[in-house]
């Protein structure tokens, strides 16, 4: 039996699934793990759904539960394979966007991101998603000033990889 609550949840999640995919992309290195984490985030979102009262946007809420799951709750099935280079091949790239030099840089950057720790990954993710420091601090539970300081450090770390 599918309750109306369940229907509402599934359609909202289906619509906003990219958020979860993007988290999985940063925190996993292969398709199996991606699916696994996607599923765990879905379960956690569903479990927390009764507490979601609609006073914040579904997406804001999904960011938080998604990151919480990836960083804290989720148990990796296999041993972490953090050292394996980030595999971007399963993300389709449009032909006209192809630029060799840029592509090399991106490969390096994604590789560097995959080496970051879980908290730094969360910062990079929130930066890429254009979140402001208020939201970053509210998601992670740290002060805005400290979020800013750490973000600059992580950005510096990534830039240094491209310009050693």
């Amino acid at each position: 039996m599918k309750s109306s609550e369940e229907k509402e949840f599934v359609s909202q999640l289906e619509e906003n699934q990219n958020i979860i995919h993007k988290i999985c992309r940063l925190y996993t290195t292969d398709e199996d793990a991606h699916k696994d984490l996607f599923q765990e985030i879905t379960i956690q979102l569903w479990k927390a759904y009764p507490n979601f009262r609609g006073d914040s946007k579904f997406t804001t809420w999904a960011y938080r539960v998604g990151l919480n799951t990836a960083i804290t709750l989720y148990r990796k099935k296999k041993k972490a394979i953090d050292t394996i280079e980030f595999d971007g091949s399963y993300h389709k790239v449009k032909q006209e966007d192809y630029n060799f030099e840029e592509e090399e840089q991106l490969k390096l950057l994604y590789g560097a991101i995959s080496e970051l720790n879980d908290i730094e990954k969360a910062l990079v993710f929130l930066y890429l998603e254009d979140k402001d420091y208020t939201e970053i601090s509210e998601t992670l539970g740290i002060s805005e000033v400290n979020a800013r300081v750490k973000m600059n450090r992580v950005k510096g770390k990534l830039k240094k990889i491209l310009n050693p």
């Binding site: 369940e6 599934v10 289906e14 879905t42 379960i43 956690q44 989720y74």
Partner: peptide, 21 residues
């Protein structure tokens, strides 16, 4: 560019077991 997950698949996931710590 992500492979989209259908509503049907999401329904199936809701009834899977969590493996949270």
């Amino acid at each position: 560019s992500f492979k989209r997950i259908s509503e049907k698949e999401i329904y199936a996931m809701l009834h899977k077991r969590s493996s949270s710590i």
